[in-house]
Amino acid sequence: MKVYALALGLMASAASIQAAGAETLALYNWGDYINPEILAGFTAETGIEVTLDTYSSNEEMLAKIQAGATGYDIVFPSVHMNDIMLKLGLLEKTDINLSPGFAAIDPANLRSKEDPDSAYCLPYAWGTVGIFYNEKVTGPITGWADYFAAAEKGAKVTLLDDMREVVAVGLIMTGKSVNSTDPADLQGAVDYLLSQKSKVAAFTYDSMSMLTSGDIGAAHFFVGGNVFFTQTPDVKYVIPVEGATMYQENICVLKTAPNKAAAKAFMEFYLRPEIAALNVAQQFNGTANVPARDLVPDFIKQNPTINVPAETLTRLQIFEDLGAGLKLYDRAWNTIRTAQ
């Protein structure tokens, strides 16, 4: 009885705090994917309290939203998930493209097929997925061939624990699209990966600290990993010559958002070049905000793997929604992971 009373009391007081408190904005973002200074700045300027919950995959976020999670205003889906959510009718039209600051956005970053004009979502950040390597251990690496060759010679290497990213390595190395739904293409990718699997120490996201400590020689990771290696010149990042994947997340407002006005205000806040630049300086990734690209620290501006030149862009592919074809990838991924 006491416990119940206590729980009820807590609920009541939580409700009253919310009622008494100021306006709030609820973000649902990937873990460690926004500079906290942006949130603080937004609150300081508008008086709107920001809450932040995190997820670790698009599907996790989608599953939660589909299962009826309410209370979130803004989510940060990858472009293909942005498309899926639009198809499912989960997103709110914001007309952010009509805001005066929208002129700053690079049209190349309007990648959504369902929302080509950005009437719904705003490009948030983008980056590449490539190879981090410790040059002292592996020697110079330019791409996947070097990566597997280094592994062959005894360096420990890891791939991401991510279905599409790993299958994409196989597709790239067999010259196919990372969005192929042709079973033969996938079979080729699986065969390639299986032939390399014994050289791969692990499928993991925990590779950055292991690279720092020298426990592994090379790791498949997001460009943002550069954050860890500003003081370690031996660890380098490369966008593989054979080709690589890129990602882009957009800021989207949910149809069920309790505070759509605050959500729109946040998007407009993020349109400001100095705010977008703040994120790049902390996240080490790309921005769609053209003027912001000049406001970032020099060492980022001069790093061609973060500030990617046009010729490199041509070998990048972005994930698209595969529809029912996703099943092929699921099967391929199970086969890769269980093969001995």
Binding site: S57, A63, D161, F203, T204, Y329
Partner: peptide, 19 residues
């Protein structure tokens, strides 16, 4: 290292990446 797949991983994968 996600190599010794167990059935729990499989279930998780169906909900969180294979949809």
């Amino acid at each position: 290292g996600a190599k010794g797949l167990m059935v729990g991983n499989l279930v998780e994968q169906q909900f969180l990446s294979a949809r």
